[in-house]
Structures are given as structure tokens and as C-alpha cells.
């Protein structure tokens, strides 16, 4: 069997995956923006305004489905491509991989899988609660994300897990960001170095931003 599952060429699959990935990257910024409201010391008032907006604005509601689709497409194509890539080398090398290459690019499926597991946990903790599939913790309303987050971060184990996960997210993003541009054919002697720098900064700042919240909850509150 060739590399033509679903009748799409390898490059088309990658382009769609890259577009979905860039969409997820832009979503992360919005998500982080709202999460950072958790840090304002007002008992969650600011944060809940953000949540309120995200759960009621009709445009955001449409985007919710686009977002779910984006995740599904990115993950599905990623897995298909990885399986085909494993099949492309049926006999492995005895001495493997001393070629110089960007380190994180070797482990995209692994960091991706870790992020996926987190995503499942995250959905069970928040999204499915909102949808009413999972019941909220005792005495917490099903849209009271502030209480849910506070309860979760109060659990040291979860908070540490969350922080570790953000590190892996950073690894994934570090390669992903510039790789998406390369796949889309957006490569230029002048702009590519800039894209790479932005990607590196993004992949450090965004996970750090997310991780700062449990850190504040543990050490300051």
C-alpha cells in the first residue's frame, strides 16, 4: 500500500495538519489569556467574566465546534502519517540516528500522545462537566470553572502533573511552530529566522504562562 490513505497525497495531509496546528496554536493564546485572569486576586470575578463570554457568545460557540474539529483533524492526520512513516522503514537500523537534527522533531508523536492524554483529563475535568456528561465536584455548579480549577490545583499531585505537562507542550510547540510554516511552503531567507525565533519564544512563554497559574496557587495562595 502506498502513502495515499484517504486518497490524499502526503503533502496535502501535511498541509491540512499544519493549518489545523496553527489554528490550535492561535487558540492556545486565547485560552491562556482567559486562564491568566485566574491570577487576579478577586475571588475569580474577572475569570468568570471571561468564562461567561466564552460560553455565551454565539461566535465563540461556533468556534467551539471548529476547535473540536481542529483537534480531531490534527490528531487523526498526525497518527495516520506516523503509522505510514513507521511502515516506510520495516527493518530498523542497528545503530540509529546519529544525524544532526532538531531534537524535539524526533519525538513529536510522543509529546503529542502525552498532550492527548492530558487533553482527555482536561476535557473530563471541565468541558464534559459543562456539557453535563460528567458531574461536577460536590457543591460546585457545572459552569463554575473557577471553583473547579481551584479545587484541582489544591491537589498537589494534579498541579505538578499539570506543570510537567506544560513542559511537554513546550517541546511539541517548539518544533511545531516553524515546521508548520515550512510545510505550508512559507520559507524565506529573510523571514524564516524570524519565524523560528517567534516559535521559540512562543513555545517557552505560552507553557510558562499556563504553568504559572498552579505555581501561584501552590506557593502564593
Amino acid at each position: 500500500m502506498g502513502n495515499k490513505l484517504f486518497f490524499y497525497s502526503s503533502i496535502t495531509k501535511k498541509i491540512v495538519m499544519a493549518l489545523a496546528g496553527l489554528f490550535l496554536i492561535s487558540f492556545l493564546v486565547v485560552h491562556l489569556g482567559i486562564n491568566l485572569l485566574l491570577l487576579s486576586d478577586d475571588g475569580g470575578a474577572a475569570f468568570m467574566v471571561g468564562v461567561e463570554f466564552m460560553t455565551t457568545n454565539p461566535l465563540v460557540k461556533i468556534m467551539e465546534y471548529v476547535l473540536l474539529g481542529g483537534f480531531a483533524i490534527h490528531i487523526l492526520i498526525g497518527v495516520i502519517i506516523q503509522i505510514q512513516n513507521w511502515m516506510a522503514r520495516p527493518v530498523r537500523y542497528k545503530v540509529e540516528g546519529y544525524s544532526h537534527l532538531s531534537f524535539f522533531s524526533k519525538y513529536m508523536i510522543h509529546t503529542g500522545a502525552i498532550i492527548f492524554i492530558f487533553l482527555c483529563i482536561h476535557f473530563t475535568n471541565f468541558y464534559f462537566v459543562k456539557l453535563g456528561i460528567v458531574s461536577p465536584p460536590e457543591g460546585v455548579g457545572k459552569e463554575d470553572f473557577y471553583q473547579m480549577a481551584t479545587l484541582l490545583f489544591a491537589d498537589r499531585f494534579y498541579a505538578i502533573l499539570y506543570i510537567v505537562l506544560m513542559i511537554f507542550l513546550g517541546f511539541h510547540l517548539h518544533h511545531a511552530f516553524q515546521s508548520a510554516f515550512q510545510t505550508l511552503g512559507l520559507n524565506h531567507t529573510k523571514y524564516t529566522p524570524f519565524i523560528k525565533t517567534v516559535g521559540t519564544i512562543y513555545s517557552i512563554l505560552v507553557p510558562l504562562g499556563f504553568a504559572s497559574i498552579p505555581l501561584v496557587f501552590i506557593f502564593i495562595r
Binding site: 512513516n85 511502515m87 522503514r89 544525524s99 544532526h100 537534527l101 511552503g185
Partner: peptide, 30 residues
């Protein structure tokens, strides 16, 4: 023919005896 898909690792460029750049891959994608 069953070749794999590029994930932009850059190993090819590092090992190519003729130092062909992966800029060409971006060009082909385009």
C-alpha cells in the same frame, strides 16, 4: 512507492553529501 512523509526534522539536509537545503522542500510544498 511507499516513502514516508516529511516531518521537517532536517536530518536529510544534515547528511546530504551535496548539502541540498530543505528550502527546496518548502519550495516543492509551495
Amino acid at each position: 512507492l511507499g516513502f514516508g512523509s516529511c516531518t521537517n526534522t532536517g536530518a536529510c539536509e544534515a547528511e546530504c553529501p551535496k548539502q541540498i537545503s530543505i528550502d527546496n522542500i518548502a519550495r516543492m510544498n509551495r
